[in-house]
């Protein structure tokens, strides 16, 4: 609704000489310009349908700091580091707002129930719950939502955070120590638990 209203306002300000009536993109053409090309890997509006992470509806501040961490070599990735280097601070701010303003999608994925149950226990006992909330929905803006995120991505992300040879943002250093005592199987269970949550 907000987007529609602002586009009507923008259209009004631009005068009535347009051929096409309402122009949606005028609400935020710069955000759409840098945000829409991401759909190829991250899904329409960031609502991924594959194992690439959902970025729709993540906290704007988290998105902004994450893109900068990838860009500045502070966070390991197979590809996102290479891509993030292509953007200025202004572009990163625009795309972070673009995706931050979207809603988290109601995707479902099939998850091993036993692994998820084990993961839930670990989530409570290891202390993940402290930052990531009861179900993997964080209250703090610099902590990402995990509930409903893809298991493949989460699993890989935790393995990367645990790996001392891979770059990790200073703000996420706590993750390395949290994960240090967990086996690959534990990590897969945690990923299954978060993936199973809504």
């Amino acid at each position: 609704m907000r987007q529609k209203l602002s586009s009507i306002l923008a259209a009004g300000l631009l005068g009535g000489a347009m051929l096409g009536g309402t122009i949606n993109a005028s609400a935020d053409p710069a955000g759409a310009m840098v945000g829409n090309p991401c759909a190829g890997c991250h899904g329409i509006d960031g609502a991924s349908q594959g194992q690439a992470p959902v970025i729709a509806g993540l906290n704007t501040m988290y998105l902004d700091m994450t893109m900068k961490a990838y860009r500045d070599g502070q966070r390991y990735a197979t590809i996102m580091d290479r891509i993030a280097k292509g953007y200025t601070d202004e572009q990163i701010a625009a795309m972070s707002k673009f995706f931050g303003d979207k809603s988290w999608p109601a995707n479902t994925q099939s998850v091993d129930a036993d692994a998820a149950a084990k993961g839930q226990k670990l989530h409570m006992s290891t202390g993940c719950v402290g930052c990531h909330g009861q179900t993997g929905v964080a209250m703090m803006p610099n902590v990402p939502r995990l509930a409903g995120q893809y298991a493949g991505f989460l699993n890989q992300q935790m393995l990367d955070y645990k790996d001392a040879g891979k770059a990790i943002p200073p703000t996420a250093m706590v993750m390395r120590s949290m994960l240090s005592g967990l086996s690959d199987e534990d990590i897969a269970a945690l990923a299954a638990f978060y993936a199973s949550q809504k």
């Binding site: 347009m18 053409p29 759409a32 310009m33 190829g40």
Partner: peptide
């Protein structure tokens, strides 16, 4: 091609809407 289709659509929308098109941004993977 996917990325170019989005830029072309934005360019046409800007023309139709009578506003300045934002600086284009293109990606390939």
């Amino acid at each position: 091609a996917n990325s170019q289709g989005k830029v072309a659509a934005a360019a046409i929308a800007a023309k139709v809407g009578g506003y300045e098109m934002p600086d284009p941004s293109y990606v390939n993977t």
